[in-house]
Design a protein around this nucleic acid. Structure first.
Length: 154
DNA sequence: GCCAACGTTGGC
DNA sequence: GCCAACGTTGGC
């Protein structure tokens, strides 16, 4: 099993929205590297940190789980969607996504400052300079460390 | 709202 | 294939 982190602006869709909705298709990703992680890397059952970006505070807010593997992102075909891609057709889709289901909302957000301050997390892609991906991998070691932080065990 | 750091686009 | 211009992300 692999571990991941996905970013969402909580004003648009937060961990609490996911809790209410139970599951959601992760549509709207329009970056090739992030798409490739969803298309080629993410398998059913993989666990995902739900990261709140552009938030007060920004940080990891909870855990989700991949409930459906790669499939075309329907918003690319929707002329009324802000994510519409005129180059994509149902026969030749460009953008794929996964579906995730709610697992847990942390009692407090693990802030970006906390993540940056933890020596054990220095290899976490999120805290490395210049990483702006909205979907990225998390190592097993880092995953366990962050879960400990979230559950107050550190 | 600012701006640094990237990614994408398009002219050549 | 280069690279300037532009757009986007996202922390602060």
């Amino acid at each position: 099993m692999n571990y991941w982190l996905m970013k969402s602006e909580p004003d648009v869709f937060s961990i609490h929205d996911l809790k209410r909705k139970r599951k959601t298709g992760w549509d709207g990703v329009r970056n090739y590297q992030a798409r490739n992680y969803m298309r080629d890397g993410m398998k059913k059952g993989d666990l995902v940190f739900f990261y709140h970006s552009n938030a007060e505070p920004s940080g990891i807010a909870g855990i989700a789980r991949v409930s459906k593997e790669r499939h075309p992102d329907p918003s690319q075909f929707d002329a009324n969607s802000e994510y519409h891609d005129p180059k994509a057709t149902p026969e030749k889709p460009i953008w794929e996504m996964v579906e995730v289901e709610f697992m847990e909302a942390f009692s407090h957000v693990i802030t970006l400052a906390e993540l940056k301050a933890a020596p054990a997390l220095k290899n976490l892609p999120l805290v490395q300079k210049g990483t702006r991906l909205s979907v990225m991998p998390v190592g097993e070691t880092e995953w366990k460390e962050i879960v400990k932080l979230a559950h107050g065990e550190i």
